[in-house]
Amino acid sequence: MKHLIITNNPLVAEKYENVLWTDGSVEKTLIIVRDFIHQGYELVSHPLAASLRMLFSPYRSIIIDKKKEKLNFEHAQIIEDSIIKYKKHMDLRKTDEKTRDDYKKIDLLLLEAALSEEQGKWY
């Protein structure tokens, strides 16, 4: 497998093999992604979702690529900015726990959409 999925979503962990399961919050998941980026891995999917509502999600799955020789500065900046942006929102808000099962499903479906975009590539 070429990609690694970093996720705190148990549905994703059940379904895929190339998963790094993080038993924690979205913020913790983002920080783990950042640590990988700092080691030279690249982002495949953007760390943030596309709507405010999804910021309330207790689950987030992010795809990263193989380790490269050199750190990807742009990706490092993207993950750092994403963490700042995420924290800025969640310092004031809480994740929406009541409908966590639905967030699990939608996170999985959005991940699948991202994976399907990546099919048939090798670079």
Partner: peptide, 9 residues
């Protein structure tokens, strides 16, 4: 299209 993948972007 607004993609979720960076390559798409």
């Amino acid at each position: 299209p607004e993609h979720t993948t960076l390559s798409g972007k």
